[in-house]
């Protein structure tokens, strides 16, 4: 009578292995740990602070680690009026953030210039940076910022992360497979 053998690859992790796409796993990791760059320029920053505080608690979405160094950030939250004097400084900070990076334009001013139809105010940060999520409001309530953050998480979970990060490798793999 033949002896029976365990067929588990490793019986210690049997049943604990999950199969998924690489993109899905990577996106899941990214979207639940979005470290914000708090680009607080005006009163929207007060709502941003409220969102981070205990009542609204942005930590529930993994975005509580406000970093004041752009090199450690994933998402820049442009909260407030961007004047022309500040505009290139904002762009410079954005350029210092490592890829992958996202931008949330929080409030009317950051999205469109808001009520400041003026010589001194940039009419929307999207003239300088690629904005992923716009949040309406003047200023938006913390719930709106959280909704925007969830929108961004939704967007991230649909991204082709591997292809975006390693375009040459993806191309070579596709060539080999075809």
């Amino acid at each position: 009578m033949p002896e029976s053998h365990s067929t588990a690859y490793d019986s210690k992790i049997e049943g604990n292995v999950i199969f998924t796409r690489f993109d899905a796993a990577l996106n899941w990791v990214r979207k639940n740990s979005l470290w914000p760059m708090p680009m607080g320029l005006a009163c929207c920053a007060i709502e941003l602070m409220a969102t981070a505080a205990s009542r609204f608690d942005i930590a529930r979405f993994g975005a509580e680690v406000m970093r004041f160094s752009p090199r450690q950030c994933d998402v820049m939250i442009v909260a407030g009026t961007v004047t022309y004097k500040m505009a290139l400084a904002v762009k410079r900070i954005y350029e210092q953030m490592p890829e992958p990076k996202w931008v949330i334009a929080m409030g009317a001013c950051a999205s469109t210039g808001g009520m400041y139809r003026s010589y001194a105010v940039l009419q929307g940060i999207d003239q300088l940076l690629p904005v992923d999520v716009y949040i309406s409001g003047c200023p938006p309530r913390p719930e709106a910022l959280l909704a925007g953050l969830m929108k961004l998480q939704e967007k991230i979970s649909g991204e082709h992360s591997f292809r975006n990060q390693k375009p040459e490798l993806t191309e070579r793999l596709e060539d080999a497979l075809s």
Partner: peptide, 20 residues
């Protein structure tokens, strides 16, 4: 000076555009 501003450009410092 018009309310909507005038265009100006200082490379690497700042720029302005005419506001719609």
């Amino acid at each position: 000076f018009p309310l909507e501003g005038l265009p100006s450009e200082m490379p690497d410092v700042a720029f302005t555009k005419v506001t719609p």
